[in-house]
Design a protein around this nucleic acid. Structure first.
Length: 448
DNA sequence: CTAGGGTTAG
Protein backbone atom coordinates (compact mmCIF):
# COMPACT_ATOMS: atom_id res chain seq x y z
CA UNK A 1 0.00 0.00 0.00
CA UNK A 2 1.30 3.44 -0.84
CA UNK A 3 1.73 5.58 2.23
CA UNK A 4 -0.74 8.42 2.35
CA UNK A 5 0.53 11.83 1.39
CA UNK A 6 -0.31 12.94 4.90
CA UNK A 7 2.01 10.37 6.40
CA UNK A 8 4.84 11.43 4.13
CA UNK A 9 4.32 15.07 5.05
CA UNK A 10 4.31 14.31 8.77
CA UNK A 11 7.43 12.17 8.40
CA UNK A 12 9.20 14.90 6.48
CA UNK A 13 8.62 17.44 9.23
CA UNK A 14 9.49 14.94 11.96
CA UNK A 15 12.74 14.07 10.20
CA UNK A 16 13.49 17.76 9.77
CA UNK A 17 13.02 18.41 13.48
CA UNK A 18 14.98 15.37 14.57
CA UNK A 19 17.89 16.08 12.26
CA UNK A 20 18.24 19.61 13.56
CA UNK A 21 18.42 18.32 17.10
CA UNK A 22 14.88 19.14 18.18
CA UNK A 23 14.00 15.60 19.17
CA UNK A 24 11.47 16.75 21.75
CA UNK A 25 9.48 18.54 19.07
CA UNK A 26 9.76 15.54 16.79
CA UNK A 27 8.47 13.30 19.56
CA UNK A 28 5.55 15.61 20.26
CA UNK A 29 4.63 15.35 16.59
CA UNK A 30 4.70 11.58 16.82
CA UNK A 31 2.04 11.81 19.52
CA UNK A 32 0.03 14.34 17.52
CA UNK A 33 -0.09 11.91 14.61
CA UNK A 34 -2.43 9.73 16.62
CA UNK A 35 -4.81 12.62 17.00
CA UNK A 36 -4.75 13.11 13.25
CA UNK A 37 -5.74 9.44 12.91
CA UNK A 38 -2.40 8.46 11.50
CA UNK A 39 -0.27 5.57 12.76
CA UNK A 40 3.46 6.39 12.89
CA UNK A 41 5.30 3.99 10.59
CA UNK A 42 8.87 2.75 10.78
CA UNK A 43 10.11 5.87 9.01
CA UNK A 44 8.54 8.14 11.61
CA UNK A 45 10.19 6.17 14.40
CA UNK A 46 13.52 5.77 12.66
CA UNK A 47 13.74 9.49 12.01
CA UNK A 48 13.43 10.31 15.68
CA UNK A 49 15.65 7.47 16.87
CA UNK A 50 18.37 8.46 14.42
CA UNK A 51 17.93 12.09 15.44
CA UNK A 52 18.46 11.20 19.10
CA UNK A 53 21.51 9.06 18.46
CA UNK A 54 23.11 11.59 16.13
CA UNK A 55 22.63 14.30 18.72
CA UNK A 56 24.14 12.30 21.54
CA UNK A 57 20.85 11.35 23.22
CA UNK A 58 21.72 7.67 23.39
CA UNK A 59 19.49 6.66 26.27
CA UNK A 60 16.55 8.41 24.68
CA UNK A 61 17.29 6.63 21.42
CA UNK A 62 17.25 3.26 23.14
CA UNK A 63 14.03 4.06 25.00
CA UNK A 64 12.34 5.03 21.77
CA UNK A 65 13.63 1.92 20.07
CA UNK A 66 11.93 -0.16 22.77
CA UNK A 67 8.76 1.89 22.43
CA UNK A 68 8.78 1.31 18.71
CA UNK A 69 9.00 -2.45 19.23
CA UNK A 70 6.17 -2.27 21.79
CA UNK A 71 4.08 -0.33 19.27
CA UNK A 72 4.52 -3.42 17.06
CA UNK A 73 6.59 -1.63 14.45
CA UNK A 74 9.27 -4.09 13.35
CA UNK A 75 12.86 -2.82 13.41
CA UNK A 76 14.31 -3.00 9.94
CA UNK A 77 17.82 -2.48 8.66
CA UNK A 78 17.64 1.28 9.08
CA UNK A 79 16.48 1.02 12.70
CA UNK A 80 19.32 -1.36 13.45
CA UNK A 81 22.05 0.70 11.87
CA UNK A 82 20.75 3.73 13.75
CA UNK A 83 20.49 2.13 17.15
CA UNK A 84 23.68 0.03 17.28
CA UNK A 85 25.89 3.13 17.60
CA UNK A 86 23.96 4.02 20.76
CA UNK A 87 25.16 0.76 22.33
CA UNK A 88 28.67 1.54 21.12
CA UNK A 89 28.65 4.96 22.76
CA UNK A 90 27.14 3.69 25.99
CA UNK A 91 29.34 0.56 25.89
CA UNK A 92 26.34 -1.53 26.84
CA UNK A 93 27.52 -4.82 25.45
CA UNK A 94 24.55 -6.72 26.83
CA UNK A 95 22.11 -4.71 24.75
CA UNK A 96 24.46 -4.72 21.81
CA UNK A 97 24.62 -8.50 21.91
CA UNK A 98 20.84 -8.71 21.91
CA UNK A 99 20.77 -6.49 18.85
CA UNK A 100 23.44 -8.64 17.24
CA UNK A 101 21.28 -11.70 17.87
CA UNK A 102 18.33 -10.01 16.22
CA UNK A 103 20.51 -8.88 13.32
CA UNK A 104 21.74 -12.43 12.73
CA UNK A 105 18.29 -13.96 13.06
CA UNK A 106 16.76 -11.69 10.46
CA UNK A 107 19.69 -11.84 8.07
CA UNK A 108 20.86 -8.25 8.32
CA UNK A 109 24.48 -9.28 8.79
CA UNK A 110 25.46 -8.54 5.22
CA UNK A 111 24.28 -4.97 5.39
CA UNK A 112 27.45 -2.85 5.23
CA UNK A 113 26.01 -0.12 7.41
CA UNK A 114 24.89 -2.52 10.13
CA UNK A 115 28.05 -4.59 10.02
CA UNK A 116 30.30 -1.58 10.38
CA UNK A 117 28.36 -0.30 13.34
CA UNK A 118 28.66 -3.79 14.90
CA UNK A 119 32.42 -3.71 14.33
CA UNK A 120 32.54 -0.36 16.07
CA UNK A 121 30.27 -1.53 18.87
CA UNK A 122 32.31 -4.63 19.75
CA UNK A 123 35.57 -2.70 19.57
CA UNK A 124 34.24 0.02 21.87
CA UNK A 125 32.96 -2.60 24.30
CA UNK A 126 36.41 -4.17 24.55
CA UNK A 127 36.01 -7.11 22.15
CA UNK A 128 38.46 -6.36 19.39
CA UNK A 129 38.65 -9.99 18.24
CA UNK A 130 34.91 -10.23 17.72
CA UNK A 131 35.01 -6.91 15.89
CA UNK A 132 37.66 -8.32 13.57
CA UNK A 133 35.66 -11.50 13.00
CA UNK A 134 32.65 -9.49 11.87
CA UNK A 135 34.88 -7.30 9.73
CA UNK A 136 36.37 -10.38 8.04
CA UNK A 137 32.95 -11.82 7.31
CA UNK A 138 31.87 -8.72 5.42
CA UNK A 139 31.77 -9.24 1.68
CA UNK A 140 32.39 -5.62 0.82
CA UNK A 141 34.28 -3.00 2.74
CA UNK A 142 33.83 0.69 2.21
CA UNK A 143 35.78 3.59 3.71
CA UNK A 144 33.55 3.62 6.79
CA UNK A 145 33.94 -0.05 7.62
CA UNK A 146 37.72 0.11 7.16
CA UNK A 147 37.81 3.18 9.35
CA UNK A 148 35.74 1.54 12.08
CA UNK A 149 38.19 -1.35 12.21
CA UNK A 150 41.27 0.90 12.11
CA UNK A 151 39.82 2.99 14.93
CA UNK A 152 39.04 -0.19 16.85
CA UNK A 153 42.67 -1.27 16.72
CA UNK A 154 43.76 2.24 17.63
CA UNK A 155 41.47 2.15 20.64
CA UNK A 156 43.12 -1.06 21.83
CA UNK A 157 46.65 0.16 21.29
CA UNK A 158 47.28 -2.24 18.38
CA UNK A 159 48.92 0.39 16.25
CA UNK A 160 50.59 -1.95 13.79
CA UNK A 161 47.36 -3.75 12.97
CA UNK A 162 45.68 -0.39 12.51
CA UNK A 163 48.39 0.90 10.20
CA UNK A 164 48.56 -2.25 8.11
CA UNK A 165 44.78 -2.18 7.67
CA UNK A 166 44.96 1.45 6.64
CA UNK A 167 47.59 0.57 4.05
CA UNK A 168 45.47 -2.30 2.80
CA UNK A 169 42.56 0.08 2.35
CA UNK A 170 44.75 2.33 0.23
CA UNK A 171 46.00 -0.67 -1.78
CA UNK A 172 42.45 -1.68 -2.55
CA UNK A 173 41.94 1.70 -4.13
CA UNK A 174 39.68 3.24 -1.52
CA UNK A 175 40.34 6.86 -0.76
CA UNK A 176 40.71 7.52 2.95
CA UNK A 177 38.77 10.58 4.05
CA UNK A 178 39.50 12.82 7.00
CA UNK A 179 37.91 10.44 9.53
CA UNK A 180 40.06 7.57 8.25
CA UNK A 181 43.13 9.74 8.71
CA UNK A 182 42.02 10.61 12.19
CA UNK A 183 41.80 6.90 12.96
CA UNK A 184 45.29 6.12 11.72
CA UNK A 185 46.70 9.16 13.53
CA UNK A 186 44.99 8.01 16.71
CA UNK A 187 46.70 4.64 16.29
CA UNK A 188 50.10 6.32 15.93
CA UNK A 189 49.32 8.50 18.91
CA UNK A 190 48.51 5.54 21.15
CA UNK A 191 51.73 3.75 20.32
CA UNK A 192 54.02 6.76 20.36
CA UNK A 193 54.85 6.46 16.64
CA UNK A 194 55.92 10.01 15.90
CA UNK A 195 57.48 9.44 12.47
CA UNK A 196 54.51 7.47 11.20
CA UNK A 197 52.14 10.16 12.41
CA UNK A 198 54.09 12.83 10.51
CA UNK A 199 53.94 10.67 7.42
CA UNK A 200 50.15 10.39 7.57
CA UNK A 201 49.64 14.00 8.55
CA UNK A 202 51.54 15.10 5.43
CA UNK A 203 50.01 12.41 3.26
CA UNK A 204 46.56 13.84 3.91
CA UNK A 205 47.31 16.98 1.96
CA UNK A 206 49.98 15.73 -0.44
CA UNK A 207 48.36 12.49 -1.59
CA UNK A 208 44.65 13.14 -1.09
CA UNK A 209 44.23 16.91 -1.08
CA UNK A 210 42.59 16.94 2.34
CA UNK A 211 43.28 19.84 4.68
CA UNK A 212 43.85 18.70 8.25
CA UNK A 213 41.15 19.71 10.73
CA UNK A 214 41.62 20.78 14.31
CA UNK A 215 41.37 17.11 15.38
CA UNK A 216 44.29 16.06 13.20
CA UNK A 217 46.43 18.86 14.57
CA UNK A 218 45.36 17.93 18.09
CA UNK A 219 46.35 14.31 17.62
CA UNK A 220 49.83 15.18 16.35
CA UNK A 221 50.34 17.81 19.04
CA UNK A 222 49.27 15.35 21.72
CA UNK A 223 51.62 12.70 20.37
CA UNK A 224 54.62 15.05 20.28
CA UNK A 225 53.82 16.17 23.81
CA UNK A 226 53.46 12.68 25.22
CA UNK A 227 56.69 11.65 23.55
CA UNK A 228 58.36 14.43 25.53
CA UNK A 229 59.03 16.57 22.47
CA UNK A 230 57.41 19.57 24.14
CA UNK A 231 59.22 22.26 22.20
CA UNK A 232 58.30 20.69 18.87
CA UNK A 233 54.70 20.39 19.99
CA UNK A 234 54.72 24.02 21.08
CA UNK A 235 56.05 25.23 17.72
CA UNK A 236 53.62 23.00 15.88
CA UNK A 237 50.66 24.49 17.72
CA UNK A 238 51.93 28.03 17.23
CA UNK A 239 52.10 27.47 13.49
CA UNK A 240 48.66 25.92 13.08
CA UNK A 241 45.64 28.04 12.22
CA UNK A 242 43.48 29.11 15.19
CA UNK A 243 44.67 26.81 17.99
CA UNK A 244 41.90 26.18 20.51
CA UNK A 245 42.20 26.20 24.27
CA UNK A 246 41.77 22.44 24.31
CA UNK A 247 44.77 21.87 22.07
CA UNK A 248 46.89 23.93 24.45
CA UNK A 249 45.44 21.89 27.32
CA UNK A 250 46.68 18.72 25.64
CA UNK A 251 50.19 20.14 25.70
CA UNK A 252 49.70 21.21 29.29
CA UNK A 253 48.88 17.62 30.20
CA UNK A 254 52.15 16.58 28.53
CA UNK A 255 54.04 19.19 30.57
CA UNK A 256 52.62 17.63 33.72
CA UNK A 257 53.74 14.17 32.61
CA UNK A 258 57.22 15.37 31.76
CA UNK A 259 57.43 17.65 34.79
CA UNK A 260 58.30 20.75 32.76
CA UNK A 261 57.20 23.62 34.96
CA UNK A 262 58.50 26.41 32.78
CA UNK A 263 56.71 25.20 29.67
CA UNK A 264 53.57 24.53 31.73
CA UNK A 265 53.42 28.12 32.95
CA UNK A 266 53.82 29.36 29.43
CA UNK A 267 51.19 27.01 28.02
CA UNK A 268 48.74 27.64 30.87
CA UNK A 269 48.86 31.32 29.98
CA UNK A 270 47.98 30.46 26.40
CA UNK A 271 44.94 28.58 27.70
CA UNK A 272 43.90 31.38 30.05
CA UNK A 273 44.17 33.95 27.26
CA UNK A 274 41.59 32.01 25.25
CA UNK A 275 39.52 30.71 28.16
CA UNK A 276 40.21 32.44 31.51
CA UNK A 277 37.96 30.15 33.55
CA UNK A 278 39.37 26.87 32.26
CA UNK A 279 39.26 24.62 35.33
CA UNK A 280 41.36 21.85 33.82
CA UNK A 281 44.26 24.18 33.11
CA UNK A 282 44.42 25.29 36.76
CA UNK A 283 44.41 21.68 37.92
CA UNK A 284 47.03 20.63 35.38
CA UNK A 285 49.26 23.56 36.29
CA UNK A 286 48.93 22.72 39.96
CA UNK A 287 49.68 19.06 39.28
CA UNK A 288 52.72 20.00 37.21
CA UNK A 289 54.10 21.86 40.20
CA UNK A 290 53.35 18.80 42.34
CA UNK A 291 55.12 16.52 39.88
CA UNK A 292 58.22 18.68 40.23
CA UNK A 293 57.75 18.62 44.02
CA UNK A 294 57.04 22.36 44.11
CA UNK A 295 54.29 21.94 46.66
CA UNK A 296 54.04 25.60 47.65
CA UNK A 297 53.44 26.67 44.05
CA UNK A 298 50.94 23.88 43.59
CA UNK A 299 49.06 25.02 46.66
CA UNK A 300 49.17 28.62 45.45
CA UNK A 301 47.35 27.66 42.25
CA UNK A 302 44.70 25.86 44.28
CA UNK A 303 44.27 28.94 46.44
CA UNK A 304 43.97 31.16 43.38
CA UNK A 305 41.28 28.84 42.06
CA UNK A 306 39.42 29.04 45.32
CA UNK A 307 39.61 32.81 45.54
CA UNK A 308 38.24 33.07 42.02
CA UNK A 309 35.43 30.72 42.94
CA UNK A 310 36.53 28.08 40.45
CA UNK A 311 35.53 24.61 41.53
CA UNK A 312 36.71 21.46 39.89
CA UNK A 313 34.03 18.88 39.51
CA UNK A 314 35.09 15.62 41.05
CA UNK A 315 36.53 12.91 38.88
CA UNK A 316 34.48 9.76 38.78
CA UNK A 317 35.26 6.14 37.98
CA UNK A 318 32.92 3.28 37.36
CA UNK A 319 33.29 -0.42 37.64
CA UNK A 320 30.91 -3.02 36.38
CA UNK A 321 30.68 -6.10 38.59
CA UNK A 322 28.06 -8.73 37.89
CA UNK A 323 26.07 -6.43 35.62
CA UNK A 324 25.85 -3.75 38.26
CA UNK A 325 27.54 -0.42 37.92
CA UNK A 326 29.34 1.06 40.91
CA UNK A 327 30.48 4.65 40.75
CA UNK A 328 33.22 6.24 42.83
CA UNK A 329 33.74 9.94 43.15
CA UNK A 330 37.04 11.23 44.50
CA UNK A 331 36.78 11.53 48.26
CA UNK A 332 33.44 9.77 48.37
CA UNK A 333 32.82 7.41 51.28
CA UNK A 334 29.22 6.53 50.64
CA UNK A 335 29.69 3.10 49.09
CA UNK A 336 28.21 0.38 51.36
CA UNK A 337 31.50 -1.55 51.26
CA UNK A 338 33.63 1.54 51.83
CA UNK A 339 35.46 0.19 54.88
CA UNK A 340 36.41 -3.04 53.14
CA UNK A 341 37.49 -1.13 50.06
CA UNK A 342 39.61 1.20 52.13
CA UNK A 343 41.34 -1.72 53.82
CA UNK A 344 42.02 -3.40 50.49
CA UNK A 345 43.43 -0.16 49.15
CA UNK A 346 45.64 0.39 52.15
CA UNK A 347 47.04 -3.12 51.94
CA UNK A 348 47.69 -2.56 48.30
CA UNK A 349 49.52 0.71 48.80
CA UNK A 350 51.54 -0.84 51.60
CA UNK A 351 52.58 -3.73 49.39
CA UNK A 352 53.44 -1.36 46.57
CA UNK A 353 55.70 0.62 48.81
CA UNK A 354 57.34 -2.53 50.11
CA UNK A 355 58.18 -3.63 46.58
CA UNK A 356 59.55 -0.24 45.69
CA UNK A 357 56.81 0.92 43.36
CA UNK A 358 56.78 4.67 42.97
CA UNK A 359 53.91 6.07 44.97
CA UNK A 360 51.51 8.57 43.49
CA UNK A 361 52.38 12.20 43.73
CA UNK A 362 49.27 12.63 45.82
CA UNK A 363 50.71 10.38 48.47
CA UNK A 364 53.99 12.23 48.74
CA UNK A 365 52.58 14.71 51.18
CA UNK A 366 55.10 16.91 52.85
CA UNK A 367 54.77 20.09 54.78
CA UNK A 368 52.01 21.52 52.70
CA UNK A 369 48.84 23.38 53.38
CA UNK A 370 46.27 21.24 55.18
CA UNK A 371 43.56 22.31 52.74
CA UNK A 372 45.71 21.22 49.84
CA UNK A 373 46.45 17.88 51.43
CA UNK A 374 42.77 17.18 51.75
CA UNK A 375 42.19 18.05 48.11
CA UNK A 376 44.66 15.36 47.07
CA UNK A 377 44.28 12.64 49.63
CA UNK A 378 41.57 10.59 48.03
CA UNK A 379 41.90 11.97 44.59
CA UNK A 380 41.99 8.58 42.99
CA UNK A 381 38.54 7.33 42.36
CA UNK A 382 39.88 4.74 39.97
CA UNK A 383 41.81 3.08 42.74
CA UNK A 384 38.71 2.89 44.90
CA UNK A 385 37.02 1.22 41.96
CA UNK A 386 39.90 -1.19 41.47
CA UNK A 387 39.99 -2.03 45.15
CA UNK A 388 36.29 -2.75 44.98
CA UNK A 389 36.90 -4.99 41.98
CA UNK A 390 39.54 -6.90 43.93
CA UNK A 391 37.26 -7.58 46.87
CA UNK A 392 34.24 -8.46 44.79
CA UNK A 393 35.34 -10.47 41.78
CA UNK A 394 36.48 -14.07 41.96
CA UNK A 395 39.98 -15.11 40.99
CA UNK A 396 40.47 -14.92 37.24
CA UNK A 397 37.68 -12.50 36.53
CA UNK A 398 38.15 -9.44 34.43
CA UNK A 399 37.80 -6.06 36.03
CA UNK A 400 36.58 -3.37 33.72
CA UNK A 401 36.64 0.22 34.69
CA UNK A 402 35.64 3.21 32.72
CA UNK A 403 36.70 6.64 33.65
CA UNK A 404 35.99 10.08 32.37
CA UNK A 405 39.62 11.01 32.10
CA UNK A 406 42.61 9.18 30.77
CA UNK A 407 44.52 6.65 32.81
CA UNK A 408 47.39 8.73 34.10
CA UNK A 409 50.94 7.55 34.62
CA UNK A 410 50.55 7.20 38.40
CA UNK A 411 47.44 5.13 38.06
CA UNK A 412 49.06 3.11 35.31
CA UNK A 413 51.87 2.05 37.63
CA UNK A 414 49.38 1.12 40.32
CA UNK A 415 47.28 -1.06 38.06
CA UNK A 416 50.30 -2.81 36.58
CA UNK A 417 51.29 -3.70 40.09
CA UNK A 418 47.80 -4.87 40.96
CA UNK A 419 47.60 -7.06 37.88
CA UNK A 420 50.77 -8.75 39.06
CA UNK A 421 49.67 -9.47 42.60
CA UNK A 422 46.07 -10.46 41.86
CA UNK A 423 47.19 -12.62 38.92
CA UNK A 424 44.32 -11.71 36.71
CA UNK A 425 43.77 -9.58 33.67
CA UNK A 426 42.50 -6.12 34.35
CA UNK A 427 40.91 -4.28 31.49
CA UNK A 428 40.69 -0.58 32.04
CA UNK A 429 38.97 1.65 29.62
CA UNK A 430 39.33 5.40 29.82
CA UNK A 431 38.00 7.87 27.31
CA UNK A 432 40.50 7.16 24.63
CA UNK A 433 41.41 3.52 24.79
CA UNK A 434 41.58 0.16 26.43
CA UNK A 435 44.48 -0.82 28.60
CA UNK A 436 44.94 -4.54 29.11
CA UNK A 437 46.98 -5.25 32.23
CA UNK A 438 48.40 -8.68 32.90
CA UNK A 439 51.33 -10.02 34.93
CA UNK A 440 52.58 -6.55 35.69
CA UNK A 441 52.56 -5.51 32.03
CA UNK A 442 50.28 -3.36 29.92
CA UNK A 443 49.30 -3.75 26.28
CA UNK A 444 49.77 -0.01 25.79
CA UNK A 445 53.25 1.40 25.66
CA UNK A 446 54.40 3.36 28.67
CA UNK A 447 55.34 6.74 27.51
CA UNK A 448 52.89 9.15 29.07
C1' DC B 1 13.77 16.41 -1.56
C1' DT B 2 10.79 10.74 4.39
C1' DA B 3 14.94 7.19 7.88
C1' DG B 4 20.76 4.51 8.45
C1' DG B 5 27.23 3.12 9.84
C1' DG B 6 33.11 5.25 11.30
C1' DT B 7 35.56 11.79 14.56
C1' DT B 8 41.27 13.41 18.98
C1' DA B 9 41.55 14.04 24.56
C1' DG B 10 40.19 15.86 28.67
Amino acid sequence: MMPSRDLVSWNTVIAGNAQSGMCGDALAMLRDMGRANLKPDSISWNSIIAGCVQNGLFDEGLTLFRKMVMAKVKPGSVSLSSITPACAHLTTLRLGKQLHGYITRFGFEDNVLIASSLVDMYAKCGYIMIARRIFNKMKLHDTVSWTAMVMGYALHGHAHDAISLFKQMETEGLKPNSVAFLAVLTACNHAGLVDEAWHYFNSMRNDYGLSPHLEHYASVADLLGRAGRLKEAYDFICKMPAPSSSIWSTLLAACRVHKDVEMAENVANKVFRIDPSNVGAYVLLSNTYSSAKRWKDAAKVRITMKSKGIVKEAACSWIEVKNKLHAFVAGDKSHPCYEKIKTALEELVEQMEKEGYVPDTSEVLHDVDEEYKKSLLFNHSERLAIAFGIISTPEGATICITKNIRVCNDCHTAIKFISKIVRREIIVRDNSRFHHFKDGKCSCQDYW
